[in-house]
């Protein structure tokens, strides 16, 4: 009699139990390609577009976390410790989600976070001060979701590249900043800045080639008040922390990537994608594809090019995927202002 009563009670309970209004998709997001879309500056939210083979899921963060938005200007993301860390620049935070189901775990408050790097099992993020005069390299405690150490850098710390026990950091700077043409070197064992490498104006991006040498792209200074005072960009090869090669480039070159062979470098110059062979850097730059792109990336498995087009920065953007021969494979509609591609394969 009592057992029947319990069974009946359980049955009734299931009729009235709460069901979550949840449209999230049960799936494993620990592998795939992620497009980080900035969203409208000041009046929008960043979004993440998920791609895997032929599958596309838009706004994966909002889909998996109903009622939540990422925040203003999603800048970049990285995988670490079974979580994804998403830098949301203008919201002054890093949003942390579970890598499998993309569910919200927590946030790390940090002013104007920019880009991440994994180095020797540790996770770092660059960030800026709110008055845009200085930057920081921050060590993240991925268990407690806090910043365990923050080291100040003069100028605006941007991209990072890990090699051996060092992290190399570019510094976006103006002509009045003291570190206006340097890469900063940070020791990840001692957690201190160990020096600088002087190169060209306004260091922008870094890549590592098959010889273990570092390539540094510099944009040059753009003087928005008097364009005649803008300076040239440049590209440099850094060997054993010394500049071994330098070449001038037009002002405005940015976003440096290397193919999977680590023999060819690619960057954006105006409305062209430029190729540079590491063994023949002196040769004239070769434009391999044309179009006004906001960023580019190379797939770590198939060497496909991923070119992000923000269009008019108000409507949804577009991802163009090219094969190794620069033939169009696919066009994908992204969120507003696609800014960063992350491959987690």
């Amino acid at each position: 009699m009592f057992n029947r009563f319990i069974l009946l009670s359980l049955f009734i309970a299931t009729l009235f139990s709460c069901t979550k209004d949840d449209n999230s998709i049960q799936k494993d997001y620990s592998r795939g390609t992620f497009i980080v879309n900035e969203g409208l500056f000041n009046s929008g939210t960043g979004t993440i577009t998920y791609l895997n083979d032929d599958e596309q899921i838009d706004d994966i963060f909002e889909l998996q976390n109903p009622g939540l938005v990422l925040g203003n200007i999603a800048q970049s993301m990285i995988f670490h410790d079974n979580k994804y860390f998403i830098a949301v620049n203008n919201s002054a935070k890093i949003v942390v989600v579970n890598a499998v189901d993309f569910k919200y775990i927590g946030e790390i408050p940090v002013n104007l976070p920019r880009y991440f790097v994994n180095s020797n099992g540790k996770l770092y993020v660059t960030s800026w001060s709110s008055d845009f005069t200085s930057g920081f390299i921050n060590l993240i405690d991925t268990k407690t979701l806090t910043i365990s150490k923050s080291t100040a850098i003069q100028g605006l710390a941007e991209k990072m590249l890990s090699k051996d026990n060092n992290v190399y950091i570019t510094v976006t700077a103006s002509e009045w900043d003291p570190l206006n043409h340097h890469v900063v070197v940070y020791d990840t064992q001692k957690e201190v800045l160990t020096g600088t490498i002087e190169a060209g104006d306004n260091t922008n991006d870094l890549a590592l080639d098959k010889n273990g040498d570092i390539w540094l792209l510099c944009s040059g200074f753009t003087n928005y008040t008097d364009p005649g005072l803008s300076t040239d960009g440049s590209i440099h090869k850094i060997v054993n922390n010394k500049v071994a090669f330098s070449k001038k480039l037009p002002n405005g070159c940015q976003k440096l990537v290397v193919n999977n062979n680590k023999s060819e470098l690619y960057y954006l110059n105006g409305s062209s994608v430029i190729e540079l062979n590491i063994t023949k850097p002196d040769e004239d730059s070769k434009a391999v594809y044309s179009g006004l792109f906001y960023n580019l990336a190379i797939h770590p498995v198939n060497d496909n090019f991923y070119l992000l087009n923000a269009k008019d920065f108000q409507q949804k953007g577009e991802l163009t995927i090219l094969n190794k021969d620069f033939k169009q494979v696919k066009n994908v509609t992204t969120g507003i202002i696609p800014a960063f591609v992350y491959f987690n394969n």
């Binding site: 969203g39 000041n42 009046s43 929008g44 939210t45 938005v69 925040g71 203003n72 203008n90 919201s91 002054a92 935070k93 002013n111 104007l112 709110s130």
Partner: peptide, 10 residues
């Protein structure tokens, strides 16, 4: 005013 998605420190 800034948007509510922006940092309050902006």
């Amino acid at each position: 005013p800034v948007s509510i998605t922006s940092s309050a420190s902006t």
